[in-house]
Amino acid sequence: MIEVDGLVKRYGSERAVDDISFQVQTGEVLGFLGPNGAGKTTTMKVITCYLPPSEGTVWVDGLDVRTHSLDVKRKIGYLPENTPLYQEMTVYDYLTFVAAMRGVDSTQHASRIAEMADVCGLETVLGKRIEALSKGFRQRVGLAQAMIHDPPILILDEPTTGLDPNQIVEIRELIKKIGKEKTVILSTHILSEVQLSCDRVLIIHKGKLVADGTPKDLQESFSSGQQIRFGVQTPPDPVLSVLSGWNGIQIKETVRTGDAETLFTITTERKDDLRPELFRLAVDEGWVLTELGRDQANLEDVFRHLTTD
């Protein structure tokens, strides 16, 4: 659907995007992750035909952004960073304007706006001026204008920045709903957002692509090990004597919680899951299992690992 090939974007002598290549499949929700100034926004601006590439190119549905920008623009709905909107217009007038500019047939305007109002929850504010709306509503107007022409591709630059936690959840739900039918690229620096909404993550640092994979893959490939919480209703000694025979594990902590319960924290470099073995051990020994959990390096660790020098 979208193919970015050797993309370079220079501002003067600075390379904001430095030889990035990736592909996005139809129906995929792709998360762009990276510290501020990493080149996420610039990449999006090239895909949306706002900025021309310095080198390399981007194909959208087989169309080159350099030569077929109008056709590419028709396929894309875009929400730029900070949601720029014409403040003095009412929501209804603004959406009508965007629909007309986007080539939506004038007989369809009312029904498309009604649908967007329904999807984005704008029914109550259609007649209000945009400047009078809260940040959350403005963000929804931004999403509505991006989707008014029913584009197959949506590009959202930091769609949840500046929202309160409730609004973030709402926008995230909305993106999830949209992502079922459309190809979505969204950028963010909120890591949990990527885990919750994206099928795939690209991490960009200093204009270069440093990681590409599902959130789960990234966690596994970059985790330097795992940590297991193992709680049983048994005094520690018998457990320690069994576990000390296991290869490649360390008992990091032993905590007695309550009368007969012990919680062990086990670390290991092994990539495989230790939990089934521990469960069988507890069953064989007749210990009552109270806790069994695995903490992996989370995306935050991966992110920090990849984007600090």
């Binding site: 949306t48 706002y50 056709d71 623009k73 875009y78 730029p80 720029p84 500019m101 986007r102």
Partner: peptide, 12 residues
Amino acid sequence: SGTLELLLTMPV
């Protein structure tokens, strides 16, 4: 205000 970016990413 940044609206130019939206305007220029419309098919015009």
